[in-house]
Amino acid sequence: MTATTGITLGGLLTALLVLIANLRPWYVGGREMKKLAPFSKGFAAAVCAAACPGGILGWAHTHTGGVANTVGEKTGAAATGTAPAAALSRGQLVGLGMTGACIVALAVFLVYLAWKAAGKEDKRRIFGGAYVGTVFVGTAGVAGALSWVPGALNAAGQSVVDAFNGTGIL
């Protein structure tokens, strides 16, 4: 499972609507960075999951694009009367190794714990960030800009392994 569903303009529309819905309260409410924290947590978890070539996280990333496209095309058609759009250029993060996969699992688990402890509004924001992140990383532009993420995750994981192996301590 290494191919992601191509994102259409309709799918991108839904992600942009969710992004605007999350950025507007921050923008009009004093622009405090802590108000963006729940959304950012979800976005970061989605980027980590997008680096996964398979498993549950890879499957969720792969199939979110199809959901976004379906909802977005219906939303766009209902609001504007336009026909479904062609897919945008596909993007994918590649190169995640086992050491990086451990970091991904820990990061996603931490976001899950934050979601469980959050209130109703913050739960929606975390979910919204995950949705936007998954859709955005499905495009070539954002995936290309984040192509460094799998390497960084692998390096972080290798640092943890080295620390537990005692490498470089003495």
Rank of each mutant, 00 (worst) to 15 (best):
V71L: 15
A77L: 09
I56C: 02
A44F: 07
I103E: 08
Y27P: 00
F43S: 01
A155W: 09
A156S: 11
I7N: 10
K35F: 00
M1P: 13
V137Q: 00
A143E: 01
V47I: 11
W148Q: 02
I56Y: 07
A46I: 02
L110T: 11
H61T: 09
V135T: 01
G95E: 13
G72P: 10
G119T: 04
G141V: 02
A3P: 10
A130T: 01
G54W: 10
L23H: 01
T75R: 01
A114T: 00
L153V: 05
C102G: 15
A86R: 11
A101L: 15
A51F: 05
T4F: 07
T80Y: 14
K120W: 10
L170V: 15
G11I: 08
I56D: 05
N154H: 02
V149P: 00
G91Y: 08
V161D: 08
I56H: 05
P84S: 09
G81Q: 10
G141H: 03
G65H: 06
L170I: 15
I126W: 03
A37S: 06
A50W: 06
D162E: 11
S40M: 11
L13Q: 09
Y131M: 05
E32C: 02
P25Q: 09
G58W: 07
V67Q: 05
G97K: 15
A152M: 10
V28S: 08
M98L: 15
T134Y: 00
K35T: 14
W115S: 02
M33C: 04
E73G: 02
N154S: 01
F127G: 06
G42L: 01
V137L: 05
G29W: 06
L19Q: 09
G54Q: 10
L93G: 03
S40W: 01
L88K: 12
A77D: 11
L36Y: 01
M1T: 14
I126Y: 05
F127M: 07
T5G: 03
A101C: 09
G11K: 04
D122N: 14
